[in-house]
C-alpha cells in the first residue's frame, strides 16, 4: 500500500478539512477504495458483483445506493463506480471479478484515479451551484441522486447521500484545485441565498 499512500500524499490535500470560516464542512476523505465496473448492468452477474463489493443493489440511472460495505454509483448505461474501504479494495476486486467471470464485463481497481471530498451542511447546494450547471434544488436533486458534471471548470461526480451529506469526486491530479475552489466558494459571507 505504500505506493498508494505516496500517490495520495502527492495531491497535497490528503485528509484536509475546511470548516472554520466556511458555510459548510469539507473533508478530503483520504485513501478510498474505488472499483469501476463495466458491462450489462441488468445482468444477474453484475448484481452479484455490486452486492459482493458494497452490499448494495445495482443503482438505477442517476442514483447512488448504499450498502453495509460501501456505495454503488451509476456512472453511465454500462458503468458503475463502487466505493468501499481502501483496505477492502483487493478482496473486493477479486470478488467482483469472480462474480463477473465468463461475462463480457470489466472490473478495475481505480482507487488511485480519483479523490473523494465529503461535504456536510445545509448550504452545500448553495456552494456547488456557484460552479456547476446542475439543478440542485431539492425537487430536482433529492437524496440518493448522483450526477456527473463539471464544477469549478473540471469534471466531477456529485452525489447526495443524505439531506446534508454529499460527496464530490474528481481526478486526483485536480484535487488541489478542487479543494481550493470549494474553500473559496464556501467562504462565510459569500452566501447567494438562492435556495
Amino acid at each position: 500500500m505504500s505506493d498508494t499512500q505516496g500517490v495520495s500524499a502527492a495531491t497535497g490535500v490528503a485528509g484536509r478539512v475546511i470548516e472554520r470560516g466556511h458555510m459548510i464542512r469539507i473533508r478530503e476523505a483520504g485513501l478510498t477504495g474505488m472499483i469501476a465496473l463495466r458491462g450489462d448492468l441488468a445482468s444477474p452477474a453484475m448484481a452479484e458483483a455490486v452486492r459482493a463489493v458494497t452490499g448494495a443493489p445495482v443503482p438505477a440511472p442517476l442514483r447512488v445506493e448504499s450498502g453495509a460495505e460501501g456505495r454503488a454509483v451509476w456512472m453511465s448505461p454500462d458503468e458503475l463506480l463502487l466505493i468501499t474501504a481502501i483496505g477492502r479494495a483487493p478482496e473486493a476486486l477479486a470478488a467482483a471479478e469472480a462474480a463477473l467471470s465468463g461475462q463480457h464485463a470489466m472490473a478495475l481497481d481505480l482507487s488511485d484515479a480519483r479523490v473523494v471530498f465529503r461535504l456536510s451542511g445545509a448550504t452545500v447546494p448553495e456552494v456547488l451551484a456557484k460552479g456547476s450547471p446542475v439543478d440542485l434544488r431539492e425537487a430536482a436533486f433529492p437524496v440518493s441522486t448522483a450526477r456527473r458534471t463539471h464544477l469549478g471548470g473540471i469534471a466531477v461526480g456529485i452525489w447526495r447521500l443524505e439531506a446534508e451529506e454529499w460527496e464530490v469526486v474528481c481526478f486526483r491530479s485536480l484535487a488541489h484545485h478542487l479543494a481550493d475552489w470549494l474553500a473559496q466558494a464556501s467562504a462565510s459571507g459569500s452566501e447567494v441565498g438562492h435556495f
Partner: peptide, 12 residues
Amino acid sequence: PNCGADCAETEL
C-alpha cells in the same frame, strides 16, 4: 436520452 439528465450545453 441515455441517462435522463437535463444537460447544459457546457456538459455536452
